[in-house]
């Protein structure tokens, strides 16, 4: 019986109070600048939460709206951006973007450009002293060649090279020496998977001296393709060689996955990226001769 009484008290509160607060009508009409611009938060509540499916390809944009450049035009801009820089420290870079699945096999290889970008690579070759492989390696310009002597050096902690190649006959000795502990973390341990355990030492060293490695990361292959002092013709040859190599790699894995070229960008150390059209000269380009001189 106590219930109705309980209800009575709240009912009296429902009636509007005699002294109601005046509503700030005018203030409402003029919304704050914050609200007027950022209105995304006023979205109506979603009726049902759709679980968004994670994208399994890399996001790519329509390039028809993008500004694209012929090689000569891009080089004219890049040379202007690199003005006054040390020409030996600044480099041209290529970025090649693919249209592919995120979990597709990556492109990874090395190639020898017609005009090498850097030539001061120190290479170590592990081959039996006195063998034919050793002579070849020395002839091609390897800095360190040997077996036991190198093992001893490395185990003492002196690693004075940037690449390490092993002849296939010396692989067993290398594995027994337990140097993987030292070389592995540096990424220098020779392995068949990396293509650094070889039978023909001479040609590998030759490729490495003027060669450069590239690898796909997040759908993009990046590589330095030229020194800043290169002429447009030299750059054209280098870019062509690079693109041909990539196309070959793409053809090799084409049975397993679909991978297509999406965008090719040329940039340099101090310049923005210029999407290339694939042409050498555009309609209004300057003569390539004008870009051949010193910076």
């Amino acid at each position: 019986m106590a219930r109705p009484r309980h209800l009575l008290a709240p009912l009296s509160r429902i009636a509007p109070p005699s002294i109601s607060l005046p509503r700030p009508e005018t203030a409402r009409l003029a919304p704050s600048a914050f609200q007027s611009i950022r209105c995304a938060a006023t979205n109506s509540a979603p009726k049902e939460k759709k679980k968004k499916k994670a994208r399994n390809t890399y996001l790519n944009y329509d390039l028809r709206k993008a500004d694209q450049f012929a090689l000569v035009d891009a080089m004219q801009y890049i040379r202007a951006f690199e003005v006054g820089r040390n020409p030996s420290s600044s480099k041209y870079e290529m970025h090649v973007r693919f249209q592919c699945l995120k979990n597709s096999p990556v492109i990874r290889n090395r190639l020898r450009l017609p005009h090498p970008v850097k030539t001061d690579l120190r290479i170590c070759v592990i081959a039996a002293p006195g063998s034919k492989a050793e002579a070849e390696a020395r002839a091609e310009g390897a800095t360190l060649v040997g077996e036991e002597s190198i093992f001893q050096q490395i185990s003492e902690g002196t690693v004075e090279f940037d690449r390490c190649i092993c002849h296939i006959d010396s692989l067993q000795k290398l594995n027994k020496s337990g140097l993987a502990r030292k070389l592995g973390p540096k990424g220098l341990m020779p392995s068949t998977k990396m293509g650094t355990v070889v039978t023909n030492v001479g040609s590998t060293v030759r490729d490495m001296v003027g060669g450069s490695e590239y690898r796909e990361r997040a759908g993009v292959v990046r590589m330095a393709v030229g020194q800043l002092g290169f002429t447009p013709e030299e750059m054209q040859r280098n870019i062509k060689a690079f693109m041909d190599a990539i196309k070959k790699d793409m053809a090799r894995i084409s049975s397993r996955t679909v991978k297509e070229l999406h965008e090719v960008v040329l940039s340099s150390t101090n310049s923005p990226g210029f999407t290339l059209t694939g042409e050498f000269r555009g309609e209004h380009s300057i003569s390539p001769k004008e870009l051949s001189g010193p910076l």
Binding site: Q76, Y77, R79, A80, V83, G84, R85, I286, E290, L291, G293, P294, L295
Partner: peptide
Amino acid sequence: IKYRNPTIPIEI
């Protein structure tokens, strides 16, 4: 300047 005069070397 370099953009408009690509043939002229500029050294710093």
